[in-house]
Simulated assay, not measured.
Amino acid sequence: MRIDLTGKKAIVTGSTKGIGLASAKGLAASGAAVVVNGRQQADVDAAIASVKAEAPSADITGFAGDLGTAETCEALVAAHPACDILVNNLGIFEPQDFFETPDSEWTRFFEVNVMSGVRLSRAYLPGMEKAGWGRVVFVSSESAFNIPTEMIHYGFTKTAVTSIARGLAKRMAGTGVTVNSVLPGPTLSEGVVAMLKDEVEQTGKTLEEVGRDFVMADRPSSIIQRPSTVEEVANMIIYTCSQQASATTGASLRVDGGVVDSL
């Protein structure tokens, strides 16, 4: 299968690192013009250079700003009024016990993980409908179904975006626009690598070994028995954005390594 997104414009939020950056690279390699996003201009510039290193002829631009606010979402739309592909990847996570998580953290996670995607989808979907073609992907998590007790406030946001994607798919029925959610499992993104760094240093094990131990201790239902790579998750996102995925909409597409124990 050859995915060709020539002539399509993609916006990938939270794409200076991890799954977002891998998705930006894959979309660019498939011919799409890509807008990468991060909070800091230096990170955006580094991400553009990283994409260019793998796809030298790619059309890559950047937008620096915190899309966890309505004002910055409006600024992004003003700078880029239309797109064909929107990957709502922006998200934050942090373990914190339920009884120690204040209202401010619930609000912060909701604004970043949920409302960024809501606002941008609301802005861009009408243009996709008018064009008769579009792709919106919400990057959710296996935590949407397998709520982690150590960060219930995070799991709740991922359940929310999975529901939003399903509802929007139905709202866009018959328009040629698809909306899906992609659900990674434990993934060796920069955030997870940072979380495992101390154990790597203390045990002398490799990152891969510590990652495997983490998965088997915290997600023992994993069938692949290891973390996914960011590229493995990005592959599903890129396919979902492709012409070939025209009959896939309203779906919760799992790239969780089999963590969620259901058919």
Rank of each mutant, 00 (worst) to 15 (best):
A64E: 10
R254M: 10
S15D: 10
S23K: 01
N89Y: 10
T229G: 03
A131E: 07
K25Y: 04
P148A: 11
A75K: 14
A29V: 06
F156W: 12
A173R: 14
K158R: 13
C241Y: 05
E232Q: 04
W133K: 00
T206I: 09
I60E: 00
A22Y: 02
L183P: 00
D256F: 01
E199V: 08
G20E: 03
I223D: 12
A217N: 14
S189I: 03
Q243N: 15
M172W: 14
E54T: 11
T101R: 00
D256K: 01
V12D: 09
A75W: 06
G257E: 09
R212W: 02
K197G: 12
L125G: 15
T229N: 01
L90I: 14
G176T: 13
D45N: 10
F214M: 05
P126K: 15
V137H: 02
T249G: 06
K130M: 09
I164A: 01
G211L: 04
A42W: 09
N235H: 09
C73I: 04
A10Q: 08
E231H: 06
A75G: 14
G117Q: 00
S141G: 04
V77C: 11
V161W: 06
Q202R: 13
G250H: 00
A165F: 02
T206Q: 13
F63E: 00
F214W: 04
R108C: 08
K170T: 11
A58H: 09
A160R: 15
I237W: 10
K52I: 12
R171W: 14
A75L: 02
E208M: 13
D4N: 06
V114E: 00
T72R: 11
A22Q: 03
T248V: 14
S242F: 08
D43F: 08
S228N: 11
D103P: 13
S246C: 12
K52T: 13
K170G: 12
M115E: 06
A64P: 00
D59E: 01
A55G: 03
E142P: 02
Y154Q: 08
S246A: 08
G250Y: 05
G62K: 00
P126A: 14
S163I: 07
W106M: 01
V233G: 04
G18F: 01
E100V: 12
P148M: 07
A217Q: 14
V193A: 08
E232R: 08
